[in-house]
């Protein structure tokens, strides 16, 4: 078991509850999709797993690689292999993509007690991953996300994922703001990185991305709780019927 979320309750610091008892198990080699209407708690779940401070866990546990994440800082979680592809990646002016990723990789290595990566090896790896995502190498010298198009920002997220090779990648609405070509390239990148050792959790509002990144499991989130799980056919059903029938099914509960 790579990730095991048990009865997770979390909310804002002021006490507003957002997640109300999430249970989720993810094994290495699996792809899970988490779907749900706006405001159902999808992005909150992603941020709580990554350790964002503005959320408080009030009950339950998140166990990753047999270790509870709750007491760990966001960077410690990252070092263990948790990666979040942000819905809205931030801009950091004056910091080049290559400098940023170099810093990130070397912080990972430092956490493992390793020396910084050799510059030539790093450059070679960056070139490979850029090719995978059909990105030009001029990209490396641009300021992180500054003036990037929506598609470039998302590709940059997947580029970083490719560089850091996480055990668990959470893609938070990676499809939003992407045209169909960019979507295909991003999905291609994610698929190329899949292996028996890692897992992917795709958070999405629409089924569209799941045509390209095919999930083993689909979960529907409603009011901070997983109310329905199934195979990839569940995603198609949601595409067809919307979320209203699920809301109705759960209205009495």
């Amino acid at each position: 078991m790579l990730l095991s979320i048990q009865n997770l309750h979390a909310g804002l610091e002021d006490g507003t509850p957002l997640l109300n008892g999430i249970d989720l198990r993810v094994n290495a080699g699996e792809v899970h999709a988490i779907m749900g209407p706006n405001g159902s708690g999808k992005s909150t779940l992603a941020n709580v797993i990554a350790g964002r401070e503005e959320y408080r866990v009030t009950q339950g546990d998140i166990v990753f690689k047999e270790q509870s994440l709750l007491a760990l800082t966001p960077e410690e979680r990252a070092h263990l292999g948790v990666f979040l592809s942000f819905q809205y990646p931030v801009e950091i002016p004056g910091v080049s993509v290559s400098n940023f990723i170099k810093t990130a990789i070397n912080e990972h290595r430092k956490a493992r007690g390793e020396e910084p990566m050799d510059a030539a090896a790093l450059l070679k790896m960056m070139r490979e991953k850029l090719n995978l995502l059909e990105m030009d190498k001029s990209f490396l010298s641009r300021s992180l996300n500054e003036g990037f198009s929506g598609g470039e920002k998302k590709r940059n997220e997947i580029f970083q994922m490719a560089m850091l090779q996480p055990a668990l990648a959470i893609l938070d609405e990676t499809d939003s703001g992407l045209d169909i070509d960019a979507l295909r390239i991003v999905a291609q990148g994610v698929n190329a990185l899949k292996s028996k050792e890692n897992a992917v959790v795709v958070i999405t509002h629409y089924q569209r991305l799941l045509d390209y990144i095919v999930p083993d499991f689909v979960h529907v989130l409603l009011h901070g709780k997983i109310v329905k799980s199934g195979g990839k056919e569940l995603a198609l059903e949601l595409e067809d019927r919307g979320y209203d029938w699920i809301k109705k099914e759960n209205a009495g509960a």
Binding site: R52, T73, E75, A78, L84, I92, A104, E107, L164
Partner: peptide, 17 residues
């Protein structure tokens, strides 16, 4: 937080920014 998530601790993140 973005830097933290990429494994970069706060002090190093501030230096970078």
């Amino acid at each position: 937080f973005y830097c933290n998530q990429r494994g970069i601790p706060a002090e190093a993140a501030i230096a970078l920014i």
